[in-house]
Each structure stands twice: as C-alpha cells, then as structure tokens.
C-alpha cells in the first residue's frame, strides 16, 4: 500500500457554464521516503494539486489518503512550503519558525521550543538573521525561513509548491543544493512541484509530468536512477541524466504541442503577416 496516495481525484472551479475542470482523475502513489517531483507547464493546475494534497481545498471526487487514512483538512502532518513564502511580516525569523513549533510541541517548555526553533533556523543556515523581520531578507532567505518553518512541525510529508520559481538563477541553484542536502539527512517523504525539468532531475527520485489542463491528468512516471549526492556540474555529463532529461522534455513538448493543437480549433484565426524585408524603415533613413 502506498504511503501517500491520490485516488481518482478531480477538481473543478466555478459553476454552470462557467465551470472548468482543473484536474481530472488524478491517480498517484507516493512511497515512504520518496522525493517525487511533479513537473508541468504554468497554469496546468500544479498549485491546485498541492492544495488538494495539503487539504487546503477538497476534491470534487476521489480520495487523498495518508497511510491508508483519508486526510481531514489541512494539518501539520503535511508541511507546506508556499510559492510566495507566506511568512508573517510582524514576526522575526525566529518568531515565524516558533509559531509552527508552538503548535506541534505544545507540551514542551518555552526554552526548549525556542531552542528547537533555533535548530531548524540553523539547519537552513539563517542563524545570523535569526532576529530579522522578513522584509529585511532577500527572496532566497525568505524561502529558507519558509522551509525551516515547514520542517519545524516535523511533518510526515513535505509539500513544496514551486518553492524556487520566484528566485534568480544563482540563488535557485544554491537552494536546490541545500534542499537536497536537508532532504538527504532524514529522507522525509516529499512532493516537489516545479516547472523546471533540471531541478526535478537534480532533486527527485521520480518525476511525474502533469499534462496541461483544463482537465489535467498525470503522465507516466520517470524514475531518476541517479546516485546521491548529485553534483550539479558532474551530472551534466552523466548519460543517465541526459537520457531522463531527453525523455521528460520530449514528453512535455509532445503533450504541450497536442494540447496547443487541440486548443487552436477554438482560437480566432490570426492573419498571416510577414515583413517584406528586415531593413530599417524607409522613412527613417536620412539622406
């Protein structure tokens, strides 16, 4: 039996003729201790998918099961790292992490709770910024806090909703390495939503593409049989890496193209315009 499972889940928004199906018949089984990446185009329903897993929204049909039991709304057993960090701006880094700890380790003395918060802040390397407010932090640092807060509840599953998509390329690479390191330490079951195939290959054990919506479904899963720790420069020359990358990219392009073709029927026809020559406009040329 799968550890975390989505069985026949579908979700639509709106009602009547405005009703659009976002996800249709999603089936997914996640093994314990697995890091699974869901890769998809933007607007394909990735955030809806993770909200369903977190229990923030309820499926119209189907079931979300954790350890065989249907989930009942959101809870700290499924930690979420939100795309836009969602840090509370009136609390310091320590305060934000402590808020999560207070509710999971409510019985412990204050001192211990505070030390535990420091432990998670240290884990993401933010001890120098412990007493800073989120507005004083860079995007990468904010996301680190968000990761620390997600880990602080010691969840059974971590849900990462495009955690790095708002960051610049360099910060993104650093954080990818850090997330991989943290994950390797206790091999917590995790779902990573991303639109970056390289990120998925670098981090995940298995990749599942999300076919573009409306009525998005999941594609076949691709195992990432690469040894850890994965080195981002060495991996580029690894034949397995190249193969997986080619497979996933090809699959995504294929479903993307057929989706666009299907969509073109309803789109208005655009005039076939082409420039006659590529020189500067005549009138601008000074003689």
């Amino acid at each position: 039996m799968a550890f975390f499972e989505l069985r026949g889940v579908s979700k639509s928004y709106g009602s009547g003729s405005q009703r659009t199906s976002v996800l249709a018949d999603i089936n997914l089984e996640i093994r314990e201790g697995e890091l699974l990446a869901v890769v998809g185009f933007s607007g394909s329903g990735k955030t809806t998918l993770i909200s369903l897993m977190a229990g923030l929204i309820e499926p119209d049909a189907g079931h979300v099961l954790l350890d065989g039991a249907e989930i009942d709304g959101p809870g700290p057993d499924r930690g979420v790292v939100f795309q836009n960090y969602s840090l509370l701006p009136w609390l310091t880094v320590h305060g934000n992490v402590l808020l999560a700890i207070r509710h999971v380790h409510a019985g412990r003395p204050r001192q211990e709770q505070s030390e535990l918060a420091d432990h998670y802040i240290d884990m993401v390397g933010l001890m120098p910024a412990r007493d800073k407010y989120p507005r004083a932090l860079s995007g990468g640092m904010r996301q680190r806090v968000s990761v620390a807060r997600g880990l602080a509840t010691d969840p059974r599953v971590m849900l990462l909703d495009e955690p790095l998509s708002a960051l610049d390329a360099l910060t993104r690479a650093t954080l990818q390495d850090e997330i991989e390191q943290i994950w390797r330490r206790d091999r917590k079951t995790a779902v990573l939503i991303t639109n970056d195939v390289d990120e998925a290959i670098l981090l995940a054990d298995r990749i599942v593409p999300l076919r573009p919506g409306p009525g998005a479904t999941l594609g076949p899963s691709f195992e990432v049989a690469l040894d850890r720790p994965r080195d981002r420069t060495a991996i580029n020359h690894d034949p397995t890496y190249k193969k997986i990358r080619a497979q996933v990219t090809q699959y995504l392009m294929l479903v993307g193209r057929s989706h666009r073709r299907a969509g073109r029927r309803s789109a208005p026809a655009l005039p076939d315009l082409r420039p006659l020559d590529l020189g500067p406009p005549r009138s601008r040329v000074v003689r």
Binding site: L56, P74, G75, P76, G79, V80, F82, N84, S86, T153
Partner: peptide
C-alpha cells in the same frame, strides 16, 4: 487578511482564538 496567512494558520491547525 492575506489568504496565504490564513492558509498558514490552517496548515498549523491554529484554533479560532489563536
């Protein structure tokens, strides 16, 4: 109130008072 902040509260299962 930012709905994202409310989502944080829901994930942490804060009580109504909290």
């Amino acid at each position: 109130v930012d709905p994202d902040h409310m989502n944080v509260a829901r994930v942490l299962k804060l009580s109504q008072m909290e």
